[in-house]
Write a protein that binds this DNA or RNA. Structure first.
Lengths: 160, 160
DNA sequence: CTTCATGCAAAAAGTTTGCATCCTC
DNA sequence: GAGGATGCAAACTTTTTGCATGAAG
């Protein structure tokens, strides 16, 4: 049922190893534990969720400071993506071997869906041309109401 | 040089009046002062900037709590838009009579540009159809490097 | 054994909340 | 006059920082 991401964890670890070595930074068990935790949770998690996971479910004990520190490294290494959806705090998502995609969030239940529209790439290029920009990346999030039965506020909406 | 937004302030005030009246909420001078401050600053400002402006430049003395409270009301009234660009905190922008647009931010100098691509509406609709969503709004931000002479990091980029 | 990373706790930054006072309706 | 709104400060949440200890190279 789940996407097979286990294999990618192995490769991500390798990438991280190389990344750290090249930058002359240390390969500590804590850093790999954070990487593992992120790749294990195939979701959009915040730093605290990872901290909790590491603290409770994994045997690794990593401080919050280290979680934040390592997440920054992972983002720099291209192994994680940082999102800041509307009103909330930072959330992270594994990035190795996962194609660039965007998000669709239900304003009722908070559920996050992913999608990909190739036309966005055109938009990105075109706007860059027009405004004289070297556009490196984009962040698109759609907000709306999903139609899941499980969605808490589902019934309330008038389906006009 | 500036866009003529003064006239819109008048109309926004009227909309706010009606909004408050209909909701049985009070029309206090503080609330209108915040509206005025937001519409006066034709930019993407945070709550604190508005607070400072009200405190120093305007004669109105409004507490931070009231600024936050009123900004929420303005967003609900459709008179303001709240943004949460990448790493930073909430920023607000006046919304009355300003067409839906998106943002392009220079990762070097932080400058915010605006643009509009009608194809986004199609994307929004299409993805909504596919995923069974009633998409209400979207948030798109492009990140890249601008080519302004004033951009601090301008020279460093290799123009490959 | 040197130096960088960790952990802890305190600080910082942004936002929310509780309560007495004030002012709109 | 009654009840919502304000201001102040304290609480809260998320993230950063400083410093002593600990471990990777």
């Amino acid at each position: 049922m789940e996407r097979p991401f286990v294999a990618h964890t192995e490769q991500a670890r390798e990438v991280f190893r190389t990344f750290l070595r090249e930058r002359g930074q240390r390969q500590t068990p804590e850093r790999f534990a954070v990487l593992e935790a992120l790749y294990h949770t195939g979701d959009h998690v915040d730093a605290d969720a990872l901290y909790q996971h590491l603290r409770d479910e994994a045997d690794a004990s990593v401080s919050r400071a280290t979680v934040y520190n390592t997440l920054d490294l992972l983002v720099e290494a291209g192994l994680a993506t940082r999102h800041q959806f509307d009103g909330s705090h930072a959330r992270y998502e594994r990035a190795y071997a996962y194609a660039q995609h965007d998000h669709l969030i239900c304003t009722d239940c908070g559920h996050i869906y992913e999608f990909c529209d190739p036309r966005l790439h055109d938009t990105q290029q075109m706007i860059g041309q027009i405004l004289g920009f070297a556009v490196a990346r984009h962040s698109l999030t759609l907000y709306g109401q999903c139609r899941r039965d499980a969605c808490p506020n589902r019934a309330e909406s008038d389906d006009a």
